[in-house]
Design a binder for these strands. Structure first.
Length: 140
DNA sequence: GCCAACGTTGGC
DNA sequence: GCCAACGTTGGC
């Protein structure tokens, strides 16, 4: 299953990931039970959209993948982390406006008002559509 | 900077 | 177990 993770770029941006060792980071600090359960459902190799919140503009900035499935956080093993590895940084952000402009993306949890989940599942079709938008295709 | 939406906390 | 208060998130 494909996924989407949110990050405030002031805290951790896709450029930070690009600079990280092996372009891989431990995705820890999630302190929401539903998001944690999603983390635990991630499988190695699955693709994950990387979303910048509180950015100008907010939107999807690239694709990462699950490099290591969920493991307990060393300092707080009630919670889980995964390792995420950079796959690609988009040439252009797929902005939240662009996402909202797509009927096929209307069900994205991220677009719901007040949605604060930092890890959400998406469908294969949604992943495909966002990748098309990233590559500049506007078609159906 | 504002504020609506949400999750968590804590008194009862 | 309810719910008001509070802190945080995130778009604008």
């Amino acid at each position: 299953m494909p996924w989407l993770v949110k990050s405030d770029p002031e805290t951790f941006s896709i450029d930070d990931l690009a600079k990280a060792k092996n372009k891989t980071t431990s995705w820890d600090g999630v302190r929401n039970y539903q998001a944690r359960n999603y983390l635990r459902a991630m499988k190695k190799g699955e693709r994950v959209l990387f979303y910048h919140s509180n950015a100008e503009p907010p939107g999807v900035v690239g694709v990462v993948k699950v490099a290591r499935e969920a493991y307990p956080e060393p300092k707080d093993d009630e919670w889980s982390a995964v390792d995420l590895e950079l796959v690609e940084k988009f040439a252009h952000t797929v902005s939240i406006d662009a996402l909202r402009g797509q009927k096929s993306l209307a069900d994205l949890m991220i677009l719901r008002k007040g949605s604060r989940l930092s890890v959400t599942p998406i469908t294969d079709a949604e992943m495909k559509r966002v990748l098309e938008l990233a590559r500049g295709k506007s078609g159906a």
